[in-house]
Amino acid sequence: MQRVNMIMAESPGLITICLLGYLLSAECTVFLDHENANKILNRPKRYNSGKLEEFVQGNLERECMEEKCSFEEAREVFENTERTTEFWKQYVDGDQCESNPCLNGGSCKDDINSYECWCPFGFEGKNCELDVTCNIKNGRCEQFCKNSADNKVVCSCTEGYRLAENQKSCEPAVPFPCGRVSVSQTSKLTRAETVFPDVDYVNSTEAETILDNITQSTQSFNDFTRVVGGEDAKPGQFPWQVVLNGKVDAFCGGSIVNEKWIVTAAHCVETGVKITVVAGEHNIEETEHTEQKRNVIRIIPHHNYNAAINKYNHDIALLELDEPLVLNSYVTPICIADKEYTNIFLKFGSGYVSGWGRVFHKGRSALVLQYLRVPLVDRATCLRSTKFTIYNNMFCAGFHEGGRDSCQGDSGGPHVTEVEGTSFLTGIISWGEECAMKGKYGIYTKVSRYVNWIKEKTKLT
């Protein structure tokens, strides 16, 4: 034993070699072989497995989906700052455009905790909710729209109204504003409101030439003092309507412009014939205590009207009353817009006519005020429907199939267009061939041609 100890002390290297040989010859039971080890760690190889990531292109799944990435790591994937920024906006807080917040056709661009709407022409605001041009839906104005110097929408209202708090709607500024039905039992019968379409306001006024200088022999019209197929109006439903009495009662109609003036057809009036105007009328054979009678003290036909040349060209006249009318729910003026808007309103496509005229061709006159909704007829169809001249200051309205029309005794009465609950004068009943005849239409004086003249002559002093 002493000898062994001496050998170990003198030859430590020998001992180490012996131990190493023993270990190498022993069977290893701690580690699995290569094949079995792979069965336990069965993990798919990654895209760049075996390579240094710093030297390969980034992978979106590896960089940002398996674990949260930084902007720089995302930049490695896209290799483009702009594309990385677009991805980053949604990656950080989701897609803010998912709810489609942009209105009126706006395009949404996502941002971090926010979004941006790219608005089409005519709109602005956070969600493109603000109209900035009158060309689109009248700028959301209830009545009139004008573009300011910086191309912003400025709404306005006709006389007797003021802008509401929203700067879009119009509200009454006087007790009985024009064009409004205020009798409670008839307010439910107000005709369907007309909503502004998209309009090209630059070209809204037709490029028409008034044929002022045409000389033409007097034409022989049949029954051209021209509501057939209409309905009984309720008291106060058309408070701007008046009836004219002269040699015979209810020979023509008219509309209240203001307390002192009536507008009617020029062919209705004769110099030297006494005319009485009755406002607030409903049943011409009954006294309903809503009527107001006034005498006409002055007749002003349009300066281009000449019955000797043509009885229905420039067929418009103004009547001055001896005493002002007292405005109330049964006696209310009709609204008159400017030339541009009167023309736009007419193009809405349908209007209402009213009167006490004959209820059928050569038949009896109506006792109760009649009204009828009539569609506008395109000019080409209008011209083809008659052998008589249709001037540019006239328009056609009615039904091709016949059966409904204005008729004798309705002449001078109103053709009105309702705009968001307020009625505007767009025409004056003038003439036609018979009444409600198939293929024939009622012919009306186009008020847009005469609004400046009306307003100039009827100013209240």
Rank of each mutant, 00 (worst) to 15 (best):
E67S: 02
L23A: 08
T264A: 06
A26H: 04
E124Q: 11
Q96R: 14
T218H: 08
E259T: 06
L24K: 04
D110Q: 12
V56N: 03
N135H: 11
T16E: 06
K109R: 10
A173E: 09
Y341D: 06
F224G: 12
V174N: 06
I428E: 00
T445W: 02
T218F: 09
E124D: 12
E61W: 03
E434S: 14
E231G: 12
E79P: 06
R226F: 07
G421W: 03
I454N: 01
S70G: 07
V269W: 04
C435I: 03
D249Y: 05
C119Y: 02
A397K: 02
F395V: 02
L244W: 02
K457W: 07
A317M: 04
Q241T: 15
N258F: 02
G58R: 00
T158P: 05
I112C: 05
V248K: 13
V416C: 06
Y391I: 05
E98C: 08
I454F: 00
G50V: 04
S220D: 15
N104L: 03
V447T: 06
V153D: 04
K446E: 06
Y91Q: 06
G427L: 00
N48M: 01
G253W: 10
L383F: 15
D200Q: 09
K387W: 05
G94H: 12
E193K: 10
I112S: 11
R364F: 06
P12E: 12
V368P: 08
R140K: 13
T276I: 10
G409N: 13
G58D: 10
E76P: 02
C396N: 02
T426F: 00
V447P: 03
G442N: 14
F348K: 08
K45E: 02
V242M: 01
G122E: 09
T84S: 06
S182H: 09
T271P: 14
V199H: 11
G442W: 05
I256D: 00
T225L: 11
T85R: 15
K362R: 15
T84N: 03
I15Y: 11
L163P: 05
K440S: 11
T445I: 06
S411M: 15
K39G: 11
M437W: 11
A265Q: 04
T287V: 15
C119I: 01
E420N: 11
V242S: 01
N127G: 05
T158Q: 13
C102K: 02
F121I: 07
E61P: 02
S204F: 14
I256H: 00
V296M: 02
C178S: 00
E66P: 00
L211P: 09
A308S: 15
M394S: 08
L189P: 12
G58I: 00
K168Y: 14
S114H: 12
I428G: 00
S148N: 13
C252M: 01
V416W: 15
T276P: 01
S184I: 15
H34C: 06
K168C: 05
P324R: 05
R358G: 11
L346Y: 05
A9R: 13
I15M: 12
S156Q: 10
S411T: 15
W356H: 08
E159I: 08
S430D: 02
I262N: 00
K459S: 15
E86M: 10
S187K: 09
K68V: 07
I299W: 07
V296Y: 01
T287Y: 11
L41C: 03
W240G: 01
Y201M: 12
N343M: 05
R75T: 09
H361D: 15
W453P: 00
I112E: 14
F176R: 05
C157W: 00
P324E: 06
L41H: 08
G94S: 13
Y352T: 08
G280I: 02
G349A: 06
S187T: 15
M65A: 07
P175A: 12
C268V: 01
Y305K: 03
G412L: 12
C268T: 00
L32V: 14
G106V: 03
C178T: 01
G398P: 04
Y305N: 03
K455E: 05
T29Q: 09
F87W: 14
I15T: 08
G13Q: 13
E73R: 01
L367W: 13
S182L: 06
E171Y: 09
E418H: 07
F144D: 00
E98K: 12
E82L: 04
K146P: 02
K152M: 13
D322M: 03
Y391T: 12
E27V: 06
R373G: 05
V242I: 05
Y201I: 15
D110A: 14
V257K: 01
N151H: 11
C108N: 02
G442V: 14
C97G: 03
Q216Y: 09
S169F: 06
W453F: 05
G253R: 10
F196W: 14
V77Q: 03
A233E: 05
E401A: 15
A279K: 00
K347N: 12
C141F: 01
R364N: 15
E456W: 06
T422C: 05
C117P: 02
Y341G: 04
T287L: 14
E35A: 12
I256N: 00
M437D: 11
L346V: 06
S148I: 08
G432S: 15
